[in-house]
Design a protein around this nucleic acid. Structure first.
Lengths: 203, 203
DNA sequence: GCATAACTTCAAATAGTTTTGAACGAACGA
DNA sequence: TCGTTCGTTCAAAACTATTTGAAGTTATGC
């Protein structure tokens, strides 16, 4: 039986270190991958990059902060991809940089407070989008209003219909904005009011 | 000053026909375009194709059902694009096909009930996505559970942390599902309960 | 039935997004 | 200081998604 020859490739070194330390069962790795992929998909659906979701999820499930290299290995990403993805997550404030005692490499951890995270994202992303839409519709409404008194009956009819329809859309958009406001402010304090409403409403 | 020479291109013919009939001011066309573009962007942000939003918006703002050609002209789309976009909107049930008396071409109109529309989309799209995510996490949780009694303390620790974190995510996802359920069922009946909650909560 | 207009489909072109990896720069320890 | 490791950047490549337009199909009126 030949003893396994030393193989200096990074992958086998990682595996060796791993099994020497803890022999983490494949099942755990597989579950982690499944969950991070599921969250990656959900995030992508939500309009973020899939890898942002995957990286965040791996960090969130980890019992310790991870280095860029750990992420690169677990998620099979290139150096550049890890660097850029982590930078973006830092910008969103959903991942934090940590210095671990005696380690040269930087370590990263996921923001643990999910509500804080969600309310920040809703605030910055959704609200910007809906406010823009509301502004565009308000502008249009102002521009149309002048024509609702047109002497040409065809023009007047069209202007009246458009004003009415855009008004409906605007009401809806404002209701959406209020829903977001409510979510954000409830979330900032605690989730219980929201939970109470939902539980009360649905059963 | 040379008088403008006759130009038989479709665009000028359309303009000529238009001004002969009603001289719709540019301002109305421009507002319509601005709103449909805003809605297109919002829809894209939401994960639909931008043109779906634009087409729907133009139909919604129109005082009469429109033909494929009308849409092609107003939105500067190719024949194929109109056909495919409208087909997709029909599949989502947010646009209806109408036969207009004595006209050969088909006409289209937007679904006018916004809440009906939204609850349908939430139900079919969002719920599918979140249910998949919930299922993936439940699977992972089951797979991990076996290891929380591992004899290796490192494995046990890792399994416990993962179980705890995935549990948190699962709670959150379930809360999200309830929020969607509540929106969908309120929307199906009427929007007033939702409105009351929001108005009550935010002021 | 035939000719024609309306509509659909789909392969190819275009546009847009994400990922890679090599080049560069900064920080650290010797 | 020098050599090495770590991290970032960015142009090019790979990949996805969208759009076009021409060929094909269906429906209509004569």
């Amino acid at each position: 039986m030949t003893p396994e020859p030393p193989d200096p490739s990074e992958h086998s070194r990682a595996l060796a270190a791993n099994s020497a330390l803890s022999a983490v069962p494949d099942a755990l790795r597989a579950s982690e991958a499944a969950v991070s992929d599921a969250i990656g998909r959900l995030m992508q659906f939500w309009g973020f990059k899939r890898n942002m979701g995957r990286v965040w999820a791996v960090l969130y499930m980890s019992e310790r902060p991870l280095t860029a290299q750990d992420l690169r290995e677990r998620l099979q990403l290139s150096t550049g991809a890890v660097s850029m993805t982590v930078a973006e997550l830092l910008r969103w404030g959903v991942v934090k940089k940590l210095w671990v005692q005696g380690e040269r490499r930087e370590h990263f951890a996921a923001e643990g407070n999910l509500w804080k995270m969600i309310s920040r994202v809703l605030r910055e992303r959704e609200q910007a989008e809906i406010l823009e839409t509301i502004a565009a519709m308000e502008d249009a409404l102002r521009a149309i209003d002048a024509h609702t008194r047109s002497s040409d009956p065809t023009v007047r009819a069209r202007a009246l219909v458009q004003r009415e329809r855009i008004g409906q859309l605007l009401d809806l958009a404002r209701l959406g904005r209020q829903l977001l406001d409510a979510l954000v402010s409830t979330a900032r304090l605690d989730a219980s009011a929201l939970t109470r409403f939902l539980l009360g409403g649905s059963r």
